[in-house]
Amino acid sequence: MKVNLRVWRQRGPDSPGEFKNYEAADLNPNMSFLEMLDVVNDRLASRGEEPIAFAHDCREGICGTCCLNINGKPHGPGRAIATCQTYMRSFRDGDTITIEPFRAKPFPILKDLVVDRSAFDRIMQSGGYVSVRTGAAPDGNSIPISKEIADRAMDAAQCIGCGACVAACKNASAMLFVSAKVSQLSLLPQGRPERHRRVLSMVAKMDEEGFGNCTVTGSCAAVCPKEVSLDFITRMNRDYLAALMHEAVGRAAGKEGGAG
């Protein structure tokens, strides 16, 4: 099969970018989208043009590295997939495919289709953990956790940190990403002692990084490769309010607040 690519090319973070057109012929419909780009890149290199930079690693939909916006949709046309799980059979022979990087102020473009998503790491560093020292843990079975809670926490924990939620949201909001981690840890008894300070500091960091706000359009969950649910945003909002109340009550009682 043959497709026409319209690819965003940008030399570096501060260079202006533009769309370039490439014809990709002799493709196999069973190729993955990234394998198609490999082929295109090989052909570009063979004629002395610099290959298209794009982020990828595991190529099995779990590492969260790949991040292309394909025909306006993060990760491509399928449901619950990462870019690497998009296959050429999802397109028709002769299609024109527009490939753009994820666009958001907190995700600056580094080169071509590669963006910097370190803002996510900084949010995690601000509180996305349980403060437990290595070696200090009690037996794994010492606190029973109902299957429902464990499964729910797992639903949230599935997030691969790819940033598609931000890329799809009209406000470039990171609420789905942040709420997945906040919810996973606030659901589990191990994460509950720190739940107030965690949600306050992670949300503060999220705001500081310049992400937009949630207007509940649902686009984030619709493109999420792991189908993380909007319900976790609700949960996080509730956790946030609870943390504010806790703070307010703590202050009123003259105790030190929990926000730390």
């Binding site: 109902s146 924990a157 994460g191």
Partner: peptide, 12 residues
Amino acid sequence: DQCVAQGVPFAR
């Protein structure tokens, strides 16, 4: 034990 304490949602 360590992983459970970190909030790894093992199957239960």
